[in-house]
C-alpha cells in the first residue's frame, strides 16, 4: 500500500515540478483514519499529502467541471470509475482531453458499498499507469438483481416502496452534485420558477425529482454508485437508474456507459428498426 502511495506522490511531485500539471487532484487525510477527502495540490512540496488506502473512496472526476479552462493541465488520479466518468464528461463535451493529465492507479477495491458492483478496477483511459493492472472482480452476476426484486412487486407495492423511499429524501441534491452524468450548467431542479419541480417537501415532489433525475441520467449512468454513497439518508437511488439500464440492455443488447468517449448514449440516437410498442 505505502509503496503505491509513494509512487503516487513521486509522480504528482514530478508533474508539478516539471510544470506539466498546474495542480493534481487526489485523496488526502482527514482527522479520521478511515476517511479521506479530495485534495488539490499545486505545490510540488505538498505532494506528500496524497494518500492511497482502502478509504480513498470519493470519485474525483466531477471536480474537473470546476475548472473547465485551466491554464495548465489538471493532474488527476484515475481509477476505473474515474476513467469512465471522464469518458462521460468527454462525450458530453464538458472537458477537453488535452486539459487533463490522467495518472492511472489500478484500484484494489475500497471499503465502500459502491465498490461491490464494480467491474472496472483498472483505468480504461490514462496518460501514465503507475503500477500493474489489478484483476477485475468476477463479473457481477447480480448487476440488476435488486431491480428484479422491485419488478417482482405489484404496481401498488412498487408505488409504496418508492413513495416511502422518497419520503425520507431531504432533497439536498448530493446525488446530483456528485454524479458525472449530471453536468448541466444549471439543473432544472434549481429553476423552481419554471414550474417543472416544486421546491416543497412532499412525497409527490420528491418522487418527481427522483424519477426525473433517473430519466435524465439513466442512459448515461456509468454505475459508479457515488449517488448512493453520498446520500445522507442512504436511499437506494441506483434502483431507478439501473432499471433504465436494464431496459436498454433488454431492448438493444449489451449496454454500458463510459467505456469510450465516442459512443452516443441510447436516447441520443435511434435505429430505424427499434422495437415498437406504439402501433
Amino acid at each position: 500500500m505505502s509503496e503505491k502511495q509513494e509512487k503516487m506522490r513521486q509522480c504528482a511531485e514530478k508533474l508539478l515540478r516539471d510544470g506539466e500539471a498546474g495542480y493534481v487532484i487526489g485523496w488526502g487525510e482527514t482527522r479520521f483514519d478511515d476517511r479521506t477527502t479530495p485534495i488539490f495540490v499545486e505545490d510540488p512540496a505538498g505532494a506528500g499529502a496524497f494518500v492511497w488506502n482502502e478509504y480513498a473512496i470519493n470519485s474525483l472526476a466531477k471536480y474537473l467541471l470546476d475548472d473547465k479552462y485551466p491554464d495548465k493541465k489538471i493532474g488527476l488520479f484515475t481509477r476505473g470509475c474515474e476513467s469512465r466518468a471522464i469518458n462521460r464528461l468527454l462525450k458530453d463535451n464538458q472537458i477537453k482531453r488535452e486539459n487533463v493529465y490522467l495518472i492511472g492507479v489500478p484500484c484494489d477495491g475500497k471499503k465502500s458499498d459502491r465498490c461491490t458492483l464494480c467491474r472496472e478496477r483498472n483505468p480504461i483511459l490514462y496518460d501514465v499507469l503507475l503500477w500493474t493492472p489489478e484483476d477485475d472482480p468476477p463479473p457481477a452476476a447480480g448487476r440488476f438483481d435488486r431491480v428484479k426484486d422491485i419488478e417482482a412487486m405489484s404496481p401498488d407495492e412498487r408505488y409504496v416502496y418508492w413513495g416511502e423511499t422518497y419520503d425520507s429524501c431531504i432533497r439536498c441534491y448530493a446525488c446530483r452534485n456528485v454524479c458525472p452524468a449530471c453536468n448541466c450548467r444549471e439543473c432544472y431542479a434549481d429553476m423552481s420558477k419554471t414550474g417543472f419541480q416544486g421546491k416543497q417537501h412532499s412525497r409527490s415532489d420528491n418522487q418527481i425529482f427522483g424519477v426525473t433525475r433517473a430519466f435524465h441520467v439513466g442512459d448515461r449512468c456509468i454505475e459508479c454508485g457515488e449517488c448512493e454513497r453520498v446520500c445522507p439518508m442512504n436511499l437506494p437511488i441506483m434502483g431507478q437508474t439501473q432499471k433504465i439500464l436494464k431496459d436498454i440492455n433488454e431492448l438493444t443488447g449489451e449496454y454500458e456507459c463510459g467505456m469510450d468517449a465516442t459512443s452516443e448514449n441510447y436516447l441520443g440516437r435511434f435505429d430505424l428498426d427499434d422495437k415498437d410498442e406504439f402501433m
Binding site: 407495492e157 412498487r158 418508492w162 418522487q207 433517473a214 436516447l267 427499434d274 410498442e277
Partner: peptide
C-alpha cells in the same frame, strides 16, 4: 419511440 419505451417502463416500475 426510444424515449417513451423507456419512460413507460420507468413509470410502471414506479407503480
Amino acid at each position: 419511440r426510444r424515449r417513451f419505451m423507456i419512460m413507460k417502463r420507468l413509470l410502471e416500475y414506479n407503480g
